[in-house]
Simulated scan of single mutants.
Amino acid sequence: MLRLSKLTDYAVVLLTRLEGEGVQAAPDLAAATGIAEPTVAKVLKILAGAGLVEGLRGARGGYRLSRPLAELPLSEVIAAVDGPIALTACVDSAVGLCEAENTCPVRGRWDPVNRAIRQALSGITVADLAAPRPAAPPAAPPTRPAAIAATA
Score class of each variant (00 low, 15 high):
S5H: 02
L7K: 13
T8F: 05
T8L: 07
T8M: 03
Y10H: 15
A11F: 05
V12A: 05
L14M: 10
L15V: 06
R17Y: 05
L18G: 14
L18R: 06
E19W: 11
E19M: 04
E19I: 02
E19Y: 11
E21G: 14
A25V: 02
L29V: 07
A30Y: 01
A30H: 01
A31H: 11
A31L: 14
T33V: 12
T33R: 04
G34A: 05
I35R: 07
I35Y: 03
T39R: 12
V43I: 12
L44V: 08
L44R: 02
L44K: 01
L44M: 15
I46Q: 15
I46F: 11
I46Y: 06
L47G: 06
A48T: 15
A48V: 11
V53E: 03
L56T: 02
L56D: 00
G58R: 03
R60Q: 11
G61P: 00
G61W: 01
G62N: 09
G62C: 11
Y63E: 06
R64E: 13
R67P: 04
L72H: 04
P73D: 05
P73W: 06
P73K: 03
P73E: 07
L74D: 03
E76W: 03
A79W: 04
A79I: 15
A80W: 07
A80S: 09
D82M: 00
P84C: 02
T88F: 10
C90P: 00
C90Y: 04
V91E: 09
S93C: 01
A94I: 08
A94D: 12
V95K: 13
G96I: 11
G96E: 11
E101G: 01
E101M: 10
N102C: 01
N102H: 04
N102K: 07
T103V: 15
T103D: 13
C104H: 01
C104Y: 00
P105M: 06
V106R: 09
D111R: 05
D111K: 08
I117Y: 12
Q119S: 14
Q119P: 00
Q119L: 13
A120P: 00
A120N: 06
A120Y: 12
A120T: 14
A120L: 15
A120C: 06
L121D: 07
T125Q: 06
T125N: 12
V126R: 04
D128E: 09
P132G: 08
R133V: 14
A135I: 01
P138K: 05
R144T: 15
A146I: 10
A147E: 15
I148K: 11
A149H: 10
A149S: 11
